[in-house]
Design a protein around this nucleic acid. Structure first.
Lengths: 344, 344
DNA sequence: CTGTTAGCGCGTTCAT
DNA sequence: ATGAACGCGCTAACAG
């Protein structure tokens, strides 16, 4: 793989010393314009690429940023990853991905894996950082790693860990949804999906209760049903909802996959959406735009989300000061899955 | 990031030479069991991890395998990637992913990117290797890279390029679908989606014609409608089909996303699936199992698919002989989107 | 079986 | 502004 040509080769051919070549390559020191021209000619003659391993060894860094996430198959993560990679490469960093296959245990292997690779930074999405009370051992692992390498936790937290958190403004996102639904005339609203031990569930439920209270609307606690984050979970929570004596006229799903499950289950029960029930998703993954009906959802701005994450970790790596906590806006995207409640 | 301890440190503490430590680390030479015990004690006392950059520099390799694919957001690619990563790590290799965002141009950047990283091997999925007549420049790029680093092309080809190809047996997959549909009583079958300039489209159309011919069934060429590979494409091709004077009783979609689009469009037109039209997908992505109705599809065995790809590239990297072309079985997965044609 | 030593390719003081 | 020389951490050839 390596083009066997080294800086010695081009130094010889350009009749200068290796240090001069190195200086030109790194731009870390002034070089006479003329000799610079001469060397650069040789450089491009051989299409020279400095050896990465040697450079890493000398620099004591890898210019790689590790990413641990629970499931690259999930459109939320894959979309965000794609954006992050785009910006990372633009900033001359590489993203090394570890897919934990939804296993908190495997995340430990991921930590070891990325450690072995001496990544310069670490981005942790989902998984253990989303646990409301993570096992001490898991917490300890992250604490150790983050003590050595700049770490940023996305949409999660980890007590006693020195990491920057970048979160999307779920509070505002949920508030926007509630405002939208109530403006349509809904007062009976449910919040479906998620898991009780996961922070995003708690956060969104909390935001929901707050906004409902602000509008002087009551929350029917039996309409907060948790089960998980998958399409299957969405099917189940709607089934559960239908068992209840009373039903809401609108439901907010913890994420789009759950919303899609709700849509699927509703079809089976011949419940017309949005006519009989309004449904709102969360995350605005690309599937939201192609479901039937197309799903109204709360969107992360994936581009600026990914940009901010990478920007932040790079700044931390370079030792710049960065806020310990960053918030990204969310935005309601209105499609076809909601309407005013019909009088029944 | 690096635990400042080196093999010199442990050599000193274990009272041996660095080479002995190195030998133990690599297992490349016999070491006295006793001294081995002694050293290993020190090794784990410090939880020693050899510096990767140094090792790479010395070994002239990176133990990284580059992966270029068009869209990590596509469940086919993300699922396959997850499997490949799993096996790669088990074999002590790392996968460095480059997501080309559906741009053939960006693939060139990806090639350069992975080249810079001196990956030991390259896996190319989709994109230019799927073009029936790729631009010469693109072909040239891959030829140059594959001359230096073992390359494997998945479900595609590239003329005049020294690369191993690993393909799934689309021929058999399509045949299984046709056999299944005809066994149900269908004789009027269409094949929807894909693009004319893409090999998989051509291959599957070819397989379709062959199997239909083998069964003495005619192919209505107007029922082969191409548009693309997305959900939106699926919607469009069904719309186009409905414009035709005659319609098939069953359609095979070029992939599951197209099939999902067909399902969506059918709902809008109040076409009951499978009652009025049977639909079969291809790839068996996880969405197939959660659509309404659940989609009958042809499945790659993702696990053995990913395993084979990684196994093959690793063997090539190690200089072992590998077949230049490998075929992976596909398997029909029957769900709810097909039934016997109703008499109309 | 073990120790010594010379690279691997590049960045970087320290002189000049 | 430029060059000589050393260090980064590890492997492997060469002695012993």
């Amino acid at each position: 793989m390596s083009e066997k040509v080294t800086i010695y080769d081009i130094a010889r051919e350009a009749e200068v010393s290796v240090s001069t070549v190195s200086r030109i390559l790194t731009g870390n020191a002034p070089v006479n314009p003329e000799t610079k021209q001469k060397v650069e000619a040789v450089l491009k003659k051989y299409d020279f690429r400095p050896n990465r391993a040697a450079r890493n060894l000398s620099n004591q860094r890898s210019t790689m940023i590790g990413v641990i996430l629970p499931d690259i198959t999930n459109p939320f993560f894959s979309t965000l990853f794609a954006e992050m990679q785009h910006y990372a490469i633009a900033k001359d960093y590489s993203l090394l991905l570890f897919n934990a296959m939804n296993s908190l245990e495997l995340e430990s292997e991921g930590l070891a894996y990325l450690s072995r690779h001496q990544v310069d930074g670490l981005i942790f999405l989902g998984g253990r950082v989303n646990e409301i009370t993570p096992p001490a051992a898991y917490q300890q692992e992250i604490a150790e790693v983050s003590a050595k390498v700049p770490t940023i936790i996305v949409n999660g937290t980890m007590p006693d860990v020195d990491a920057v958190t970048v979160c999307t403004d779920e509070q505002s996102g949920i508030a926007q949804v509630v405002d939208y639904l109530t403006a349509l005339g809904h007062t009976r609203i449910g919040l479906l999906g998620g898991s009780d031990h996961i922070t995003v569930t708690r956060n969104r439920q909390h935001a929901f209760r707050e906004e409902m209270a602000r509008l002087d609307l009551g929350v029917n606690e039996s309409w907060l049903i948790t089960d998980g984050f998958s399409i299957e979970s969405g099917e189940k929570v709607l089934e559960a909802l239908l068992q209840l004596p009373e039903q809401p006229t609108a439901v907010i799903a913890i994420n789009d996959l759950v919303a899609l499950g709700i849509l699927k289950s509703a079809r089976r029960h011949h419940i017309d959406i949005p006519n009989q029930l309004s449904v709102v998703g969360f995350d605005d993954v690309y599937l939201a735009a192609v479901s039937t009906p197309e799903l109204t959802s709360v969107s992360h701005n994936y581009e600026s989300f990914g940009h901010t994450i990478v920007e932040t970790i790079v700044n931390r790596i370079k030792g710049k000061d960065v806020p310990t906590s960053i918030m990204i806006d969310m935005q309601l995207v209105i499609r076809d899955s909601c309407q005013s409640p019909t009088v029944r």
